[in-house]
């Protein structure tokens, strides 16, 4: 089973997680930019983080044969912080032209403030300018209202629904997302958000078209193998290989391929095999000598 993990915050994970994900079938990861637990107080801190997403993290993943892509964006929490919000947006265009940057994200609402809405709409414009789809976070609290307002912003700015992945859905929000034609994302978590069994029940009701699941794996209690575990639950409940592959491989590729920067055949080549070089890379500790 090949897995394209479409939402994993590897910055907050240890290297062993990459190894476990590789063993679990993960061949590609998309890492959206998010917050760092502690609020940032300088634009430069964001830029260092973005540089890590397009640099070291990509390289770290390659050590385990995993392709690493990312989404660049100002997250909704820090969109509220005037020390950084406008400055980060001003620096984003140069990042949005980089290879491996397949979307703008995660953007959207957290507390549903006016600032969040301003920077959400502005980043949808950036996505349009740079030909990228958008990966959209929805609030943890007041989820239903948050998703409704998210969809309203997409409509107001005229952002094409098929280029929007609205994430962190649950049973209460699937219907309204489906009505618009946007891609519907689910973060499979231990305890909160969505679990494997509930997810498969949703798939049984709504089908797998334009559905995307992820493990999010972030700072909180989370599990980078949740996509693989959900795939196992799908099998247990009667899905065949093709049905599983559509959800965990073909759907995320179809969504992010809208960037024109993701070529499916590139994914057929592993970025690195033990001892071999990807883009000439090998951690320079002299072990190759």
């Amino acid at each position: 089973m090949r897995i394209f993990e479409p939402h994993a915050h590897m910055f907050s994970r240890i290297t062993d997680d990459y190894e476990r994900m590789a063993l679990g079938g993960v061949e590609a990861i998309l890492e959206p930019a998010f917050w760092l637990g502690q609020p940032r107080t300088h634009v430069g801190t964001f830029l260092d983080y973005f540089d890590t997403l397009v640099g070291w993290e990509r390289y770290r993943a390659a050590q385990y044969g995993i392709h690493h892509f990312c989404a660049i964006g100002l997250n909704p929490k820090e969109a509220n912080d005037d020390r950084v919000n406008a400055g980060v947006l001003a620096e984003m265009p140069r990042y949005l032209e980089k290879d491996g940057v397949l979307a703008v994200g995660e953007i959207g609402f957290d507390d549903m403030t006016a600032r969040e809405e301003t920077f959400f709409a502005a980043q949808l414009e950036l996505a349009r300018t740079h030909g990228l789809p958008a990966l959209i976070h929805t609030p943890h609290r007041d989820k239903k209202a948050g998703v409704a307002r998210t969809l309203a912003v997409l409509k107001d700015v005229g952002f094409p629904y098929e280029r929007a992945l609205v994430d962190h859905n649950n049973e209460e929000t699937v219907a309204m997302c489906r009505d618009t034609g946007c891609w519907v994302g689910f973060s499979i978590y231990p305890n909160t958000k969505m679990d494997e069994g509930r997810m498969v029940t949703i798939l049984e009701r709504w089908g797998t078209d334009k559905m995307i699941i992820n493990s999010a794996c972030d700072w909180g209690k989370s599990d980078p193998l949740k996509v693989a575990r959900t795939a196992a639950e799908m099998r247990r409940r009667g899905y065949d290989d093709e049905g599983v592959a559509k959800l965990v491989w073909h759907n995320p590729i179809a969504f992010f391929a809208q960037s024109d920067r993701l070529l499916a055949h590139d994914l057929d080549q592993r970025p690195v095999v033990d001892g071999e070089l990807w883009q000439g890379n090998s951690i320079l500790r002299g072990q190759g000598a």
Partner: peptide, 9 residues
């Protein structure tokens, strides 16, 4: 100071 081969090279 880079640990990525081609960059250092």
């Amino acid at each position: 100071r880079a640990s990525q081969g081609e960059l250092f090279e």
